[in-house]
């Protein structure tokens, strides 16, 4: 096999070579894609399914307990989030959560516990850089975008909803 990108790439730098270079890069990228091993997707999906499922079942049991003792629906939901977040932060602090995530992948990332981990992990890591510039500035390095885009999306939807109401459509 002779690779498109295998020649010394200096030749293609000159003059009309720009298009060639782009083609070469694409060829190399595709070739690398073929060469690079990837995780076994069905296996990983199964693990994510089990891990995520278990976390949701724990959430459901907290929810059921809260409703049983007579709390209203929203407050029960609040308790559920709060307790799951607490559990996740404790497991993160004990360095257990990364191990769950290594096995469970998205199953540990996607639930609210993954969100809590993404807040606690930078807080712990950057404590050495100080209270304000370290923990303070960097606590949201991973979770910040989630809050920004979540709030922004719901703002846009809310704005459309408000217009819809004014126009009498809704």
């Amino acid at each position: 096999m002779r690779l498109a990108g295998a020649d010394s790439n200096t030749e293609s730098l000159e003059g009309e070579g720009r298009v060639d270079r782009k083609k070469q890069q694409e060829a190399y990228e595709n070739y690398v894609k073929r060469k690079t091993p990837v995780h076994n997707l069905p296996a990983n999906m199964t693990k994510a399914f089990i891990t995520g499922g278990i976390i949701c079942v724990i959430g459901q049991s907290i929810l059921n307990y809260c409703e049983k003792i007579g709390l209203d629906k929203d407050i029960s939901g609040g308790w559920t989030s709060m307790i799951l977040i607490l559990l996740s932060v404790i497991l993160t602090a004990l360095n257990v959560y990364p191990r769950i995530a290594k096995w469970g992948g998205a199953g540990a990332l996607v639930p609210i516990t993954g969100f809590a981990n993404s807040v606690a992990a930078p807080a712990i890591e950057f404590q050495k850089e100080g209270q304000v510039m370290g923990i303070g500035c960097k606590i949201f390095t991973i979770a910040g975008p989630v809050i920004l885009y979540g709030v922004f999306t719901s703002w846009v939807l809310g704005f459309l909803y408000w217009i819809g109401k004014i126009a009498g459509l809704l």
Binding site: A93, E125, F126
Partner: peptide, 17 residues
Amino acid sequence: EKEFRFPLSYANQRPLS
């Protein structure tokens, strides 16, 4: 890891590459 990727206790899965 801290400078180039994620905090060490962050729950990510490393790709095989």
